[in-house]
């Protein structure tokens, strides 16, 4: 039952069925067809626009080469959106995974409320982002509940104009994303933890390993697949974030919280700069792909999920 990296190849072999006729691949056709129709073909068609000045409305447009891309990097507001997207993605991924892992470890214990709490902590991930964003917009208002709580606890000095101060607005947005994503990661880690045989941990406890040591040298490596999936999913969510920013701050104050997705939406639908927004979406695509590849390799190197 112990799953070491040497055991993996054996498992790999066993899961293939060599006698299976190749025609079974037809099973994949409906999925592939839908996927091609909805994502691949339109993406390819859309990509053409990244090299044009199409305004989303006119019947004609001109090809402008790489001008759209150059313009994006020359505009401080779009550079800001790229940086914001990276900050949001990395910070929320790191913190939401740390919190999720901590919650999972704590709830993978004998505490009586564990089942109720598991259900509860995942609930924010179920909420409609539009709802969450409105709720937090209210909570973060200058005279809103959050500042009210800080006052009540005598922490008045910590009060902020959360969404109005450009230095805090992005942090406020990230708090909301973390609130939503922590439960999501917790569930993945709980699943991973439940796959670790208790005897293994007990055996090492008998050997005299401390709790921290036990976690680091036994639990952590065995959790690698869970970490890979969880980090990948939160990272992709962070890189694509839209509703939270759009509803809470609209990208403001003064463009300080725009993400690539909100800027793409704004440029395309408010300014009619379709070419340049699709160029921006391609930059987003390249960023997501690069970061995922790096992250995947890094975790693979640690003996993670294959």
């Amino acid at each position: 039952m112990a799953r070491t990296s040497e055991a993996a190849p054996a498992a790999l072999k066993r899961r293939r069925i060599t006698s299976m006729p190749r025609t079974v691949l037809l099973f994949a056709v409906p999925a592939l067809a839908l996927y091609t129709f909805v994502l691949l073909v339109p993406t390819a068609r859309g990509t053409v626009f990244a090299f044009t000045n199409w305004d989303g409305l006119s019947r004609t447009f001109d090809f402008v080469g790489f001008n759209n891309f150059a313009a994006i990097f020359a505009n401080p507001d779009s550079v800001k959106a790229i940086i914001n997207t990276l900050i949001i993605a990395f910070v929320t991924t790191f913190i939401a995974n740390a919190i999720g892992l901590a919650l999972a470890v704590a709830l993978n214990s004998r505490i009586k409320s564990r089942n109720a709490l598991r259900v509860f902590f995942f609930a924010p991930a179920v909420l409609t982002p539009v709802v969450t964003a409105y709720l937090f917009k209210y909570i973060f208002a200058p005279l809103g509940p959050l500042n009210g709580v800080l006052d009540a606890f005598g922490l008045g000095v910590l009060k902020q104009d959360w969404l109005g101060d450009p230095n805090w607005a992005l942090i406020a947005v990230m708090i909301v994303i973390i609130w939503q994503q922590s439960g999501y990661t917790m569930v993945i880690y709980l699943a991973g933890l439940q796959g670790i045989p208790a005897e293994l941990l007990e055996a090492s406890a008998v050997d005299g390993a401390g709790a921290g040591r036990r976690f680091w040298s036994i639990t952590r490596p065995l959790l690698a697949p869970a970490i890979t999936i969880s980090v990948m999913l939160t990272l992709i969510h962070g890189l694509k974030v839209f509703a939270e920013v759009y509803v809470m701050t609209g990208g403001g104050p003064g463009n300080s919280t725009n993400s690539l997705s909100t800027l793409i939406y704004k440029n395309a639908f408010q300014f009619g700069l379709f070419g340049s927004s699709i160029a921006m979406a391609l930059i987003l695509l390249v960023m997501v792909a690069l970061i995922s590849a790096i992250q995947y390799r890094a975790l693979l190197a640690q003996g993670g999920h294959k």
């Binding site: 999925a31 592939l32 996927y35 909805v38 994502l39 691949l40 073909v41 339109p42 993406t43 068609r45 859309g46 990509t47 626009f49 989303g56 992709i236 694509k240 997705s261 793409i264 939406y265 395309a268 379709f274 927004s277 699709i278 979406a281 391609l282 987003l284 695509l285 997501v288 792909a289 995922s292």
Partner: peptide, 18 residues
């Protein structure tokens, strides 16, 4: 792998042509 690439595609690109 072709399908897995779909995890990364930002659907904003596809939205209008679709």
């Amino acid at each position: 792998w072709v399908i897995m690439v779909g995890l990364l595609l930002p659907f904003q690109v596809a939205l209008i042509p679709l």
